[in-house]
Amino acid sequence: MLIELERPAESTRIQRLKALTTGTHDTLDKRIMRAEPFASRERYALFLAVQHHFHGDVAPLYASADLNAKLPGLADRCRLEALRQDIVDLGGTAETLASTTGPLSPAAALGWVYVAEGSNLGAAFLRKEAMKLDLSDDFGARHLAGHPEGRGLHWRNFVAAYNDLPLSEAEEIDAAEGAKAAFRRVHGLVEKIFG
């Protein structure tokens, strides 16, 4: 059954995607906060493990020639190496991870990338919490650092490119399903790693 996608005249593709994924996203945010990832460095190390697995999943998407053609500069946005260094900073081992996404349609892949990029925007709040643990952009919280051009500008550039993609209504729905799957993946990782 095909879901009808509401298209208010003033809404953008990103706004529609956000509206279709808000419930799944909110559920994840609440679960992460219940896990208290910034209560201690030990809890934060668990958060890094969650992030590491998710960014291991999306790293191949950031390297995809097809997605980079659609979203120029996407490869430069990947935060997996920064995450690995954060894990090492805190005394952990950053093993190489294989993506668990399985085959994705191009539109679903865009949904996963939307979640990863949106998490970078939300990282501004998390970065402040990490600083309370004496972590910084140079030690332990590299993956939460803003882009040198500014976090807001970096996000707006991504949004502009995303909104300009020539997607059909069915592809927008597929992107939303991909984004929901990405949010559920992170939720599953939080449940598994934090217990």
Rank of each mutant, 00 (worst) to 15 (best):
L2Y: 10
L2S: 15
I3H: 11
I3G: 04
L5V: 13
E6W: 11
P8L: 11
E10G: 07
S11C: 09
T12W: 05
T12R: 07
I14T: 15
I14R: 10
I14A: 14
Q15N: 05
Q15P: 01
R16H: 08
R16P: 00
R16A: 13
A19T: 14
L20F: 07
H25L: 04
H25Q: 02
T27M: 14
L28P: 00
M33C: 02
R34A: 13
P37S: 11
F38R: 06
A39D: 08
A39N: 03
R41G: 13
R41P: 03
Y44E: 06
A45Y: 06
A45L: 15
L46E: 02
L46Q: 13
L48C: 02
H52M: 08
H52G: 02
H52Y: 10
H53D: 14
A59P: 00
Y62L: 13
A65S: 15
A65F: 04
D66A: 11
N68Q: 06
N68H: 00
K70A: 14
G73N: 02
L74M: 05
A75M: 03
D76F: 12
R77F: 06
C78N: 15
A82W: 06
L90F: 06
G92S: 10
A94Y: 06
E95K: 13
A98M: 11
T101R: 13
T101S: 10
G102P: 07
P103L: 12
A107C: 09
A107K: 00
A108D: 08
L110V: 03
G111C: 04
W112P: 05
V115Y: 03
A116R: 01
E117Y: 01
G118K: 01
G118F: 01
S119D: 05
S119T: 05
S119N: 08
L121K: 13
L121I: 12
A123C: 04
R127Y: 13
K128R: 15
E129M: 15
M131Y: 10
L135Q: 07
D137I: 07
F139W: 12
G140T: 14
G140R: 08
A145T: 08
G146D: 04
H147F: 08
P148K: 08
R151E: 10
R151H: 09
L153Y: 09
W155K: 06
A160V: 10
Y162Q: 08
Y162V: 02
Y162W: 15
P166S: 14
A170S: 09
E172Y: 02
A176E: 00
A176C: 09
E177N: 12
G178W: 01
A181C: 05
A181R: 15
F183D: 00
R185I: 04
R185C: 07
H187W: 13
G188P: 01
G188T: 11
I193P: 02
F194C: 07
